[in-house]
Design a protein around this nucleic acid. Structure first.
Lengths: 229, 229
DNA sequence: AATGACAAGATGACCAGTCATATTGAGGGT
DNA sequence: ACCCTCAATATGACTGGTCATCTTGTCATT
């Protein structure tokens, strides 16, 4: 699994997905598709479903909601997915695929890039009035006990995401940008988890205070070791 | 809202609830209740429902599941609660009421008590093979966007819980037990959020690593300011 | 004609909430 | 003390809606 580098926001990955990309290897060419090949329907469903799943949650998001959002007939759903669960596994995979870390920032410092990435996530959450929470946290809490397939996919994606944060932390340490000498892998995991917790809290309080707390605690105190308070 | 001091675990509050307590002011006395007054049916439903909600989540836990767990007839549910939503509000209130911070520990240091409290939570999660996650996080993620009533109750309870952590952090600072001079209120909120994030991750990975990360990052690095890594 | 893809609507399970009926004790009359 | 009436409460079967999944008819291609 690799992270696709995009300039977009992780919280709002769909924006970049609307871009048409022909996946010829995925197209089921049949006689009733005339003219130029179009985007794969399966991919269309996944991408539209990603937004819907994130907005509504698993149980509250019906197959009809998904297909309607994708602009495809409801009956086609099961031509592409054996079940709603299998669909969600594909969505999770897709979520982590399209999630990326912003690279087009002015700063070249590792810590600056780490911070900018979370700030982009923050901006995305703010756009949605803090109503979405964190995709992985949402699914984990709602489905992890009921679907090993989804849980497995979440675990995979989280490991990869944590690895990105870990690498940035390690770089920041090597570059002397932060004073924390904590284990980078542990920091990476903790930071991703704490971010989920902040997003979840923000759903309750409907403001950005939890993220402000996160930035202050993680970047100023934990990583920079600012003990002045 | 006040926290009831118990020696129990927050993750498993139900254990203490099975104790019979007559709530005479809650009893709907009708002619067909003979003999000695018994525990309120409403309270019974709330307490049993708390465990069920935590185990299954909101949507996956039906009213029938709840009443069955409470050992009461399904039709009685609506004598006590106008709706499933209202029931959940009462459950959340109850959850925070019965949640407490362990007081019966050997250490008298504030930081020791804070740590012991989270360790008790950890033990509870471990008992359940990390399958339950965090009650407030679960509900927030599943329901916060759909029910303002539940969300409001969650906000209230979280504020109170954060206040407890805040107070312990402040005491630890005053006592010179920790080197962090961070804002106690901010630390209190962040720590509660980070804990939720850790529990959520533990649901995915099905082990205690996220909590270990939490303890290391929060107690050793963030609060104690141990920069040696 | 045979085959495979597509998809609208049928199917059966689930479930929040309703309600007709049952139950019961209080109060009053004898 | 006993009986009857009535009102309040209890409750299990039912209702109507939702929804994941499947069926089956249509269509296009070979």
């Amino acid at each position: 699994m690799s992270f696709v580098k995009t300039g977009g926001s992780v919280v709002s990955p769909v924006g970049g997905i609307q871009a048409r990309q022909a996946s010829v290897d995925k197209i089921k060419l049949t006689g009733h598709i005339g003219g130029m090949a179009r985007a794969s329907m399966k991919q269309q469903i996944i991408d539209a479903g990603l937004a819907e799943l994130h907005a509504r949650g698993y149980a509250a998001c019906s197959v009809e909601d998904i297909t309607k959002a994708a602009g495809v007939p409801k009956g086609s759903f099961y031509n592409h997915f054996a079940s709603k669960e299998e669909f969600a596994v594909d969505v999770v995979r897709r979520y982590f695929e399209v999630s990326g870390w912003p690279t087009s920032f002015e700063t070249t410092s590792a810590i600056g890039r780490l911070r900018a990435g979370f700030e982009a996530l923050y901006a995305g959450a703010q756009e949605r009035s803090f109503s979405r929470g964190c995709m992985w946290g949402n699914l984990a809490n709602e489905v992890a006990d009921h679907s090993n397939a989804i849980r497995g996919q979440l675990a995979e994606g989280l490991d990869a995401w944590s690895a990105i944060v870990t690498e940035l932390v390690a770089q920041a340490q090597r570059n002397g940008e932060i004073s924390s000498a904590g284990d980078p892998a542990q920091l990476g995991r903790f930071i991703v988890n704490a971010w989920e917790g902040a997003l979840t809290r923000s759903r309750v309080v409907r403001n950005g205070q939890p993220m402000d707390d996160f930035f202050r605690m993680v970047f100023d105190l934990l990583l920079a070791g600012d003990a002045t308070g």
